[in-house]
Design a protein around this nucleic acid. Structure first.
Lengths: 191, 191
DNA sequence: CCAAGGGTTGAATGATGGTTCACTTCTTGC
DNA sequence: GCAAGAAGTGAACCATCATTCAACCCTTGG
């Protein structure tokens, strides 16, 4: 019985994610989510007090998944240069794989309460990168710099560079390499 | 008569801008805009077919003003390094002067049709910067690079770096100089 | 087997806010 | 002056959803 309860909760979140990946946040009415989860509209409110709460959690889940994937890819690399390349490639690769979801997570107009989750998402990326940058500065691989400013700026650059391609559906073949070049130079990676 | 007509139109746009600067897009109901412009709700629809059309134009106007200010400041400088510094200082200075407006223009959730205008806004900045970068590459002040990717990434970095401070209301004293350092390195400006 | 408790239902409710429209008021050309 | 037509009015309309709720199952413990 308890299992069924939390299973419903999971089903709701999964359904919301599926709709986000297909139609974006715009398609995520409570009725649509409930329908996709195979339950009635009202049942959603047995698990989440408001729609904003539901989607705050949905965003948190999806963001965590993205950040984890990027962190996992970066952790395999030994130098800051390669770690950051891995971040960019993984991030952009996944975004282009699910463009609608990426757009929803990054830039789609959403309820302000959900928007707050987005800041957390971007902050998580920034902190991940800041860790690598700080290590690079400490080891002398990178010149002295404020890791937090660098990381924040990188996240912005990455997100901005993806918005165009996400709208178009694909990235030009040279976009990602150019971006990596740019970011290496921005970090001060010695050639 | 024609004058009065276009004067009303201007009044509507001015009123919308004022409310955006005060309460953001969230406070911009058609009724509020009409009230502030000193006319009835319905009159707004004599001048704009829909709210989205109105705000597309409002965004266009505000964006143009911002881009112009930045372009004017940059044009006074002779080197790419100084031009880009001027861009950053003007952009961030103006944003911090009217944080609510800046937030609305940059990141606040808005109608998707209006959101499209935002892309144009960012594109305009990117093109402005791309021009300077291309000139710098041509003159040898900057190393070879794709000016468009560089410029897009810079716009993203700049916008992202401002979102935190805009939410907080002020930027830390070292944020702007750090950002300038970062971006100079990103461009490959020789020290 | 049965009653009790709580999960489930989905149509009704309510709030919001963009849009319309029948009517009034002004401007303009004759 | 005086139609004719355009601009202005603002209350009413309507669509969209989030949210609620009273009637319905199911599960479960006795």
């Amino acid at each position: 019985m308890k299992a069924r309860l939390s299973a419903s909760r999971e089903r709701i979140i999964a359904a919301a994610l599926e709709i986000m990946a297909g139609q974006g946040y715009a398609g995520c009415s409570v009725a649509a989510v409930a329908g996709r989860a195979g339950m009635a509209t009202g049942s959603v409110y047995r698990h989440f007090p408001t729609k904003a709460d539901l989607f705050a959690e949905v965003f948190r889940t999806a963001s965590q998944r993205e950040v984890d994937a990027v962190a996992r890819a970066a952790a395999l690399q030994a130098t800051v240069a390669k770690q950051v390349s891995a971040v960019i490639e993984t991030f952009s690769g996944r975004a282009l794989q699910s463009p609608r979801l990426a757009y929803a997570l990054l830039a789609e107009p959403v309820d302000p309460a959900v928007d707050a989750e987005r800041l957390v998402f971007r902050r998580a990326y920034a902190e991940l990168i800041a860790g690598y940058v700080a290590a690079g500065v400490a080891s002398g691989e990178l010149p002295p710099q404020d890791p937090d400013v660098t990381a924040t700026a990188l996240v912005g650059a990455l997100a901005e560079a993806m918005v165009g391609p996400l709208a178009a559906g694909v990235a030009g073949p040279s976009t990602i390499p150019s971006l990596i070049t740019f970011i290496h130079r921005a970090l001060g990676v010695s050639p």
